[in-house]
Design a protein around this nucleic acid. Sequence first.
DNA 1: CCTAACTGTTAGGCTACCTAACTATGAATG
DNA 2: CATTCATAGTTAGGTAGCCTAACAGTTAGG
Lengths: 156, 156
Amino acid sequence: MNAIEPADPRLLVLAQDFREALRHSIYLVRRLDADGELSAAQLSTLKMLMDAGPASDGGGVRVGEIARNLGVKVPSATEQIIKLERAGLARREPDPSDSRAVRVTLTGAGRTAVESANERRNAVMAGILSSLSDEDRAALAAALPVIGKINATLQA
Amino acid sequence: MNAIEPADPRLLVLAQDFREALRHSIYLVRRLDADGELSAAQLSTLKMLMDAGPASDGGGVRVGEIARNLGVKVPSATEQIIKLERAGLARREPDPSDSRAVRVTLTGAGRTAVESANERRNAVMAGILSSLSDEDRAALAAALPVIGKINATLQA
DNA sequence: CCTAACTGTTAGGCTACCTAACTATGAATG
DNA sequence: CATTCATAGTTAGGTAGCCTAACAGTTAGG
């Protein structure tokens, strides 16, 4: 799909620069995550569950779906879920329509945990962004949909 | 330094969107790294050593400096260096001017390893970027310096 | 039915981090 | 200078998150 062709030099430069930016951004992400009581993986998982709605709405998310969404294998998802369950943030219930499956949902504690962790991280990030010029912020904002597109491509 | 203040709502939205973009980008980075024979941490370390120049130029990088540059603690840097050394990609030599210190340098094999790993990853990334429109690529390119600024802030 | 496909869990292993404790050297000071 | 304090790295031991392989239970199709 993408390979052996020579490739436009300008594209390669952009690729390199983007890679570099992402590489450095890892530290930013680490900083944000270090701050909280929830790890990045756990927060991501909980956020998914939040978006999926409550069990009473036929909500909840299956383990395989969580794994796909997080970009990890099923056993890794299971592991996260077990931790969240032990922490009282998520719950596993049998799926009424398929007894092989498990539906994972947020508990009340899980919901508040997501919300507060999110707020805190957003505040830290906002603090960092506040030192930028309006121009810079505009440039960043303009690029986010593009990065979103790139990431969406990956999932396919 | 940044904290309790209410914070501009638009800033918070940008913060949230940027966080989200970075979060998803993790999978992109994973994909890129999975591809290679060098782990992300190892490649980062080697790249640093490459930039620092050869030992003959009084080059080489001290362990503490590597750690600071990678955003990790010293023992983690030591660990990486030991692995690189075992793989024949880096070398540890005593620092002539301070015998507590160690200067780490690239070997020839290390140099070629960095170059080929970099090329491969760039090619994969270029493949991904090639599906974007010129406009999108321009937006992405415009944001990279801003992201660089953000990351630079962090290091301070 | 009975086999094949699918959903999760368990077991075992790896990498990359961390903190705490230690060794050795260097620098400062009375 | 001798002592003390600071700095540079290493070692030891632990955690989180990911992986593959092997397994158990359920469903669906021939």
